[in-house]
Amino acid sequence: MIKAAQLHKEYRMGDTVVHALDGVDLHVRPGEFISLTGASGSGKSTLMHIFGCLDQPTSGVVAFQGEQISHMNDKQLARIRNQHIGFVFQTFNLINRTSALENVAVPLVYTRRSFSKKTAMAALDRVGLGARAKHKPSEMSGGECQRVAIARAIVNKPLLLLADEPTGNLDTRTGRQIMQIFHDLHSDGMTIMLVTHEIDVAVQAERMIQMSDGKIIEDTAIDDERREEILNVAHDEHAKAFRDKAQRGLRSKSLTPPAERAES
């Protein structure tokens, strides 16, 4: 579906040049559920924006369904974004002054086909919010807002769903509900690419890509066994990090018990 070869993206920040992407090769096949992880600044968001036709690489080739996006004009890119790509953001990015239904219908405005509220309503039903169509984002919980955002992303039945930290602003339980929607969409055949730094979320995908300093450092298929493994390592690391932190904390003055301080 998307093929990227030798992608480079450079930003100029003052005098220094930041290499957000530094030679990325990636092939996303139809129907895949990919998670993209990495520390902040590792380039995962940049990669996602390029895949979403919102940004162009400095060099390298991206082909969406066999067509190179770097050769497209604004009109063609807009059409791909509108028809074939759905975006879900960490902060939902809903338009607050309009209702859930109207938010879902925003992509339809730019589709230039006859506009139907039914289509938007169907997408809302799909995420289980049909009953709240008339409510505004300010009247809904974070989880509900994200579900509206997902409905907006899928209203044009895109080939590729890009999600940037979709659970980042949600509590664990709500995050799990959102992930369930992604799983449902995936089992219906949608290709999903999910950016996250939460390892528990990342392992739910069937392919996990780890990035660091603009490069892909790991690209693994995930089955149950591998999932266990990663989670165990992560938990160990987490526990170790916690222990280290605690010890560092103890050594620092404020956390040193009064008795010890008196001795020293």
């Binding site: 974004r81 509108n82 925003v106 992509p107 730019y110 992303a153």
Partner: peptide, 16 residues
């Protein structure tokens, strides 16, 4: 600004 970003992301052309 954000709304404009969203609109572009979901398929608005700059002309729109």
């Amino acid at each position: 600004t954000r709304e404009i970003g969203v609109r572009i992301a979901v398929g608005a052309r700059r002309f729109d």
